[in-house]
Design a protein around this nucleic acid. Structure first.
Lengths: 252, 252
DNA sequence: GGCCGTCGAACTGCATGCAATTGAGGCGCT
DNA sequence: AGCGCCTCAATTGCATGCAGTTCGACGGCC
């Protein structure tokens, strides 16, 4: 509906931007799981562009921390460690507190309407797939950030929110985020009321509860597969090599 | 001295990384002023690589907000608006409060030594060029962030610090940041002492004072040239065109 | 003299080609 | 059967070439 063509910067042409957006979305909807391979050829073919462009897009996404690039290796969707996930949430909390601090009491009527409409959409999607719910929940926060009119803040909040989303698919059990919709409504209400302190603490506890519900301890059994579990034991120094393991069948 | 090869991610090969680091440094030392042109050819030639690589590097820097990319146009060093500068500082304050909160009372002896050595270097550079002083001051903060061992936090703090650095060359009068060295020492002391609240407020006021010393109001006369002054009046929508002005001699 | 239109050089957007590296399967050896 | 080596297809790293666009300058016209 809204003609939100989003980020004006960092998008050399727009083909790159299209691919980035598509991949971001696929990643946060968990159509692409962490660790999924992203060969340049395939991407290029899929989007009707050459490898050059696909490569460029991967570079951008790597800069955002959504994909991992290793020299001469196929790019893969990032697999953040549990600690990184925690860090991302900590940063996110601070950034979003900043967002609501700037927004408290300053929302226009149409902005409030837009926010409410979004939460309604979240409500409606409750029966649908988890993926959509998660995406909408994330987009609520990005929508909020957008209203600050601070491009930098928007960029950082978006990035870190996407990263958090990514970690959710790694470490959370299903259906863990739906109950947060009420908290979104509460935040809107507090924003309208203009109570800065209140809305900041609401946002804080909202994110904190999402984080603690989602990030269920380092859970030995929760990792994707053997390789992930062993990762911390094979600290990869700047050129280090993972210890050779006898016969590991990589989970496809 | 320290074998700090820095960011492992987001660097496809390393030629790209080399170019990025070089340009970042040139930018924050103000060898490249905001608005400076960065043609792909020249960069490629300068660094002994093809345009492809130079282009990729520019893409990365654009993602960090240090350069501006516009379709079919020569890339230029970013020229943040005054408002963006303010926003960047606000974000920076929150992020660095997070840094020192995590670090308070947790520094090892060698880390403290490293910090002190750095501030000593800042002291020594006081007689040298402004550019070096500014770079060192910025690097102090990045050094601090590094000690959190949180790659994400490091990345964000670095980025936003570079951006702030960039704005300093636009909006600040010369010699405005040197007196901050004592504040760096105070922060180290408070970190060692482990007083979380104290160090957070120290960092807050440190950055706040740098910002307010530096960002001297929108100052009609302080902008680079006429075009910058007029920029806010010619909001560029996603494909909008700046209003045609009769005969503007662009300050070289 | 100043303004406008036209032209050319410069630059970007993108695809493709070639060399180098990887990792995966097959083969032989123990 | 298991383990290691070796070879080859798959994939990346990078440069170059071509087409389209922009910017600046020159020259004509008012």
């Amino acid at each position: 509906m809204a003609p939100r063509s989003a980020s004006k910067s960092a998008v050399p042409s727009d083909k790159v931007g299209v691919i980035c957006r598509a991949l971001r979305r696929a990643i946060i909807e968990q159509a692409l799981e962490p660790g999924a391979k992203l060969p340049e050829d395939s991407l290029g073919e899929r989007f009707g562009v050459s490898r050059t462009i696909a490569r460029h897009a991967l570079g951008q996404l790597a800069a955002e921390g959504l994909v991992e690039l290793r020299r001469n290796r196929i790019a893969v969707v990032a697999t953040p460690s549990w600690q990184e996930a925690r860090d991302a949430f900590d940063i996110r909390i601070e950034l979003e507190r900043l967002v609501v601090r700037q927004l408290a009491g300053k929302l226009t009527k149409s902005q409030v309407a837009e926010l409410n409409a979004h939460v309604d959409a979240e409500d409606r999607a409750r029966d649908g797939s988890d993926a959509v719910s998660i995406r909408l929940a994330t987009e609520f926060h990005i929508l909020l950030a957008n209203m600050t009119n601070s491009p930098i803040l928007v960029r950082y909040v978006s990035e870190v929110a996407y990263r958090c989303c990514l970690t959710l698919s790694l470490y959370s059990r299903p259906h863990s985020s739906e109950c947060a919709i009420n908290e979104h409504r509460a935040i809107i209400a507090a924003l309208v009321k203009g109570d800065e302190a209140k809305v900041m603490s609401l946002m804080h506890s909202h994110l904190d509860s999402v984080a603690s519900r989602a990030l269920v301890a380092p859970a030995p059994q929760r990792g994707r597969d053997l390789l992930d579990i062993l990762a911390p034991y094979a600290e990869e120094g700047d050129g280090g090599r993972v210890v050779k393991l006898p016969k590991v069948v990589r989970a496809r």
